[in-house]
């Protein structure tokens, strides 16, 4: 293993990274999608620190979203989707929080949220889309008028205009750009100079990181700089965009990381069962969030045999034949 010289000042524990870049009221976005590559080590750390009043901006971040909402860390949400595949067609704690009025939700779509991150990345104040014309996604706003103009909240949810280039019958939806305070993603590899490699789908992770004021990357492993330079076509983010690098093996559990591990049906089913009941949910938070001092302690509770069951096959990238019921 080469020296971590290029990571000087960036390599830190998850506690340091969250301490430095996530505060009460921050606007944050997390990487991944439903049951894949959610930065869960960071999410559990945020919950453990009882950080409050977050404005989470997300497309379809199922597990991270539900844990953060369920732990009471989130006050406002810009979101396209709160679901977790077959384990939770609607994320359970998210659903309860919305029905109880505990979080404010502004509904967008996956395309809209991706474009809003892209606009933020490109430094343009808004971006047009052809999604949602004539729908309530465009017509209805979930944020009350008095919030308009606050930090991180645009003066309008969207604005519909005629195509300014004058094509007949061609309205467009203008979407406000997003520039979150911090983006947190989980990647397979970071090199000793801070280059990030993501294997498999990148979702909107790259747009999110480029739009944000700070970037935390948690990763399965650190690899030599020369190794990622051998095949730069496969790399996702350059070192100069990354503010914090955290080594967190199994750091996306119970969501999947291609070539490293599958999603964990045992824990996701357990989560689904306890999330339905307020008392059992409170007990889950005590047991799995507040009652464990570190990500290592969390993994100890999951257990070595279960982590072995979900270990990815080298060729397929997931765990073939895994009992997913």
């Amino acid at each position: 293993m080469a020296e971590h010289n290029g990571l000087d000042g960036k390599l830190m524990s998850i506690g340091e990274a969250v301490e430095r870049f996530v505060a009460d009221g921050s606007q944050i976005c997390v990487g991944g999608f439903t049951i894949n590559r959610n930065p869960m080590a960071a999410v559990y750390e945020i919950a453990r620190r009882r950080i409050k009043d977050l404005h989470l901006v997300a497309h379809s971040n199922g597990q991270a979203l539900d844990l953060l909402v369920g732990a009471g860390c989130v006050r406002r949400l810009d979101i396209a989707y709160g679901g977790n595949g077959r384990f939770a067609p609607t994320c359970i704690r998210f659903r309860k929080a919305v029905e109880r009025g505990e979080v404010l939700v502004e509904d967008y779509t996956n395309n809209m949220m991706s474009l809003r991150f892209l606009a933020g990345a490109l430094g343009v104040p808004f971006i047009p889309s052809k999604s949602g014309l004539g729908t309530d996604v465009v017509e209805r706003s979930g944020f009350p008028p008095e919030l308009r103009g606050e930090k991180g909240i645009p003066c309008e949810k969207v604005i519909v205009i005629d195509d300014p280039f004058g094509h007949a019958d061609d309205e467009v939806v203008l979407l406000p750009a997003l520039t979150p305070d911090v983006s947190i993603i989980h990647a397979q590899q970071v090199s000793t100079d801070g280059t990030v490699r993501i294997k498999g789908l990148t979702f909107a992770d790259l747009e999110q990181c480029k739009a944000s004021g700070a970037v935390i990357v948690t990763c399965e492993e650190i690899v030599p700089e020369d190794y990622l330079r051998l095949d730069p076509d496969q790399n996702a983010l350059p070192p100069f965009l990354v503010d914090a690098v955290v080594v967190a093996p199994y750091g996306a559990h119970p969501t999947a990381v291609r070539y490293f591990y599958d999603y964990d049906p045992v824990h996701l089913n357990h989560y689904k069962a306890v999330a339905k009941d307020d008392e059992q949910w409170a007990a889950y938070l005590e047991e799995w969030v507040y009652g464990v001092e570190s990500w290592d302690a969390y993994l100890d509770k999951i257990g070595g045999a279960q982590l072995a069951h979900i270990r990815a096959n080298t060729v397929a990238g997931y765990a073939p034949g895994l009992d997913r019921r």
Binding site: A80, T90, V98, E99, N110
Partner: peptide
């Protein structure tokens, strides 16, 4: 003030639009 909250659009509105 929803009685039941569902997942939301995801990409459904986009696919329906595009």
């Amino acid at each position: 003030h929803p009685k039941v909250r569902f997942s939301g659009s995801g990409g459904a509105c986009d696919a329906g639009s595009l």
